[in-house]
């Protein structure tokens, strides 16, 4: 589904990604871990098409199409979803109206008519229940006045509504207490199918207790330096990122 080949990217002249290669297939969950500043969030933003980042070389293929040629909204309509690390507040724009606009844009792209109001509301009800999103939040302005946990749940709610092929969860666990973490993970697991794929970007192993990855990649200095099964995450948790640094240091010396 997603194939990233030797991707190099920078922001304001500062190199962040130094040759990422990654393949994600339908039905898989990939975790990307790494210390602060290793380029995790950059990778997520680059996949979504944030314009500040400059792609210097390499390719990102999504269902064999070059993603970097598409505008952010076109990527979204093709089925790329980014759950933001810091969901943006948009004052005055109701969550529901926002979602309806997004959903109908996607449907238009697929050649479908806008969803009827009744059907839409039923869908909202069903998906909101998945992440136990309070009714009031649905009608409030997008993310405005939401607590940290509510914002993250709102991201998963939107993901459920838009039903993406590829979901990239950027530090979705940050700022979540254990209950909220369970709710979010439950949402993600429920949405998982053989047709879609998920990339979980995280600093801590904690989230991976609930969303079990098929692969764990360790990002360091803009490069994937280690790939393994879910046990790698546990090992990281135990030994810390210094372990990776040391190991790398040894490699370089050797």
């Amino acid at each position: 589904m997603l194939r990233i080949n030797d991707l190099h990217a920078s922001i304001e002249g500062k190199k962040i990604l130094n040759g990422i290669t990654l393949e994600v297939n339908a039905g898989e969950i990939h975790a990307i871990m790494g210390p602060n500043g290793s380029g995790k969030s950059t990778l997520a933003s680059v996949i979504a098409g944030k314009e500040e980042y400059e792609i210097e070389s390499g390719e990102i293929l999504f269902n064999n199409e070059e993603l970097t040629e598409l505008k952010p909204e076109e990527r979204a309509r093709e089925g790329v979803f980014l759950a933001f690390q810091y969901p943006v507040e948009i004052p005055g724009v109701s969550n529901i109206n926002f979602l309806r606009t997004a959903l109908n844009e996607k449907r238009a792209h697929q050649g479908l008519d806008p969803m009827a109001a009744k059907e839409f509301l039923a869908l909202v009800k069903e998906k909101a229940a998945l992440v136990q999103l309070d009714d009031k939040l649905k009608n409030r302005s997008v993310n405005e006045g939401f607590s940290g946990g509510e914002k993250k749940r709102n991201e998963i709610f939107q993901m459920a509504m838009l039903n993406p092929k590829l979901a990239v969860l950027d530090e979705t666990d940050s700022g979540l207490d254990i209950d909220a973490l369970r709710i979010v993970a439950h949402g993600v697991n429920t949405l998982k199918s053989a047709e879609n794929a998920t990339i979980v970007v995280t600093h801590y192993q904690r989230l991976l207790d609930y969303i079990v990855p098929d692969f764990v990649h360790v990002l360091y200095n803009g490069k994937i330096v280690k790939t393994g099964s879910k046990e790698l995450a546990l090992e990281l948790e135990e030994k810390g990122y210094d372990w990776i640094k040391q190991e790398l240091g040894e490699e370089i010396q050797a």
């Binding site: 943006v88 979602l99 939107q158």
Partner: peptide, 11 residues
Amino acid sequence: QIFYCLQRGID
């Protein structure tokens, strides 16, 4: 805010 909307497929 604009990017957030774009990412949800809104032009």
